[in-house]
Design a protein around this nucleic acid. Structure first.
Lengths: 338, 338
DNA sequence: TTGAAAGCGCTAACAA
DNA sequence: TTGTTAGCGCTTTCAA
């Protein structure tokens, strides 16, 4: 059998309550008593049972994290941000991969709630009514991380995808481009996929440039799809002179595809990626990319969650983190005033 | 207040025990009774409390995972393997980043044991006596994943790092190289870092090639260090004609550094990486690399852990997974028999 | 096939 | 400052 708080109490000649106080750092204990208890704990090798504590106190100091795929560079970085802050506040995280499958997502939410997590961090694509149904059955706070619901009812941490994509497109237009290829991720995702496409379209519209259907290519965020999408673009009679890809991996594919076709970057083709992952430095020429602060999104999400869990006042329930464009070699240097 | 098993029992007009049986799929329940209970559960929106269950049953269906850094491509892939298999066996994982800091590792093991995990998966660099001390206080199985203890007492899942490095070096020697640069990770890590260096040295020795101190460069597994290490190698009077790097990221750095210096790959320099991550496809020329099946290491580790947790017979406590070299364009094609 | 009841190891009033 | 005690919500004998 394992050592329990009761064994420690007997060994130290005090009550369970006193041991509990010592273990939990309650100041109402005479130093001498505390010492006795500490010694008994050491002698017995006592290790408090967090499950029993959780049952009695109704707090588990554990939060659930539902993530599409931890093996993706993007989400791994985000997860690291979450875990660092969780760790700072003495929480542990139960991490679950959902593969963006709705049934799995719902199932995981239920499982995590059964496990009595103190809060939930959710990353996914769309928030359906089914999601909202489970969410409302939860008695603990839930935060959307790099994910939004269309009505914007739930607390969330994001960047402004529309604006980021808009800005990147504008920066290309300002360089004189009118034929801009757009390599999107799947459009099923209404709030990231769609928003970014809308940002692109808006920038064109603002500049009086017509949207050309063939310039829109749908990828799957993988290298190969960037390669393929670009091959399609290059086949067009009126081929684009610049490409905006919705993540870095596809952008690297775009660069290579261009190079394979004898184009020189950035002179024959300018390319901008998205996410500004480490990958940007690992390609020649290096990749200009929209910085999406993934680690920060995770960290801020977790920080926000701790506030909800502690029932602190939260003034901003929907956090938008800033983005910017990191210039590297796949775009021409900005004109410099002399 | 939340709905408890007692509420369901009353609603269904049965005892708590019967509800428990239904919830746990115990067959000794009359179908009609089961139906009554199921309906009551649905009506009340009952959600079993896993913490209470854990306390009563002494099983949490949760395993602890201690990983150096989830944001590393290598470990993220491994973690995905772990989680997939855990999920398959209905376990959840509590994931913790250790940053390879011993004090943090020890602390995490203790925290996870307090949380009553049913088992532990440990990834780190070296297993010190301090590690072994905590490990022995655990009453649940612990498995080392991509990590080994020098004495080889604990169950573990690995590849043969010595042999992998040996094989890669031999393949270069067989291509006629005698001047082979070796970009290592930090050598503090005795079982991965050192083993691989030894494999390299042994291959040279077997071929009667002398080990040249300057050909050994120490990196930190990041792109920049591959760039820097290679720059050093290229400065040598007798510069290498081939480079073996201990991960893909550094190998890509090596490729770029060579190209920056006007060398053509693979003609002027052959390069082999390690891990065979997706990165290999994302560089021109594509990178030949030693395949270390990271996902599988995670999956097999978790599978092994389930066996221990179920007290099944395990014939092989130390699993060595096969490795191989994936030929791509950074090495010259093998001679083909006509 | 079902129910009664004794814990699991701890926290948190409350009392002293 | 310390102890007593009643749960927390469930599983698991044991008996019926």
């Amino acid at each position: 059998m394992n050592i329990t708080i009761y064994d420690v109490a007997r060994e130290a000649g005090v009550s369970m309550a006193t041991v509990s106080r010592v273990v939990n750092g309650n100041p109402n204990v005479k130093p001498a008593t505390r010492k006795k208890v500490m010694e008994a704990i050491k002698r017995l090798g006592y290790r408090p049972n967090a499950v029993a504590r959780g049952l009695a106190s109704k707090r588990t100091t554990t939060v659930g994290v539902i993530i599409p795929d931890i093996s993706s560079l993007f989400y791994a970085e985000l997860a690291r941000g979450i875990e660092d802050i969780a760790n700072m506040y003495k929480y542990n995280i139960i991490l679950c991969n959902s593969d963006q499958r709705i049934d799995k997502e719902i199932h995981l939410v239920n499982t995590l709630l059964e496990k009595q997590v103190d809060g939930l961090l959710f990353m996914g694509s769309q928030i359906t009514d089914e999601h909202k149904d489970v969410f409302t059955t939860a008695s603990v706070p839930i935060i959307l991380s790099a994910t939004r619901d269309s009505e914007g009812e739930l607390p969330s941490v994001n960047i402004d995808y529309f604006q980021a994509s808009f800005d990147a497109t504008v920066s290309l237009i300002e360089r004189g481009h009118t034929k801009i290829g757009f390599i999107s991720g799947p459009l099923e995702d209404p709030l990231i996929g769609q928003s970014r496409l809308e940002g692109y379209k808006k920038a064109l519209r603002d500049a009086g440039i017509e949207f050309v259907d063939e310039y829109l290519q749908i990828g799957n965020y993988r290298y190969q799809s960037g390669l393929d999408a670009t091959a399609q673009l290059l086949k067009l009679a009126e081929r684009p002179t610049a490409i905006l890809a919705m993540n870095d991996e596809m952008a690297v594919g775009a660069i290579h595809s261009c190079q394979d076709n004898g184009l020189e970057i950035p002179n024959d083709m300018e390319v901008i990626g998205f996410d500004s992952t480490r990958l940007c430095a690992m390609v020649r020429p290096t990749l200009t990319s929209v910085v999406q602060p993934m680690y920060d999104i995770g960290a801020v999400s977790m920080r926000l969650l701790t506030k909800y869990m502690n029932k602190e006042k939260v003034e901003e329930h929907k956090v938008i983190l800033p983005h910017r464009i990191e210039q590297r070699q796949s775009t021409k240097p900005d004109d410099v005033d002399v």
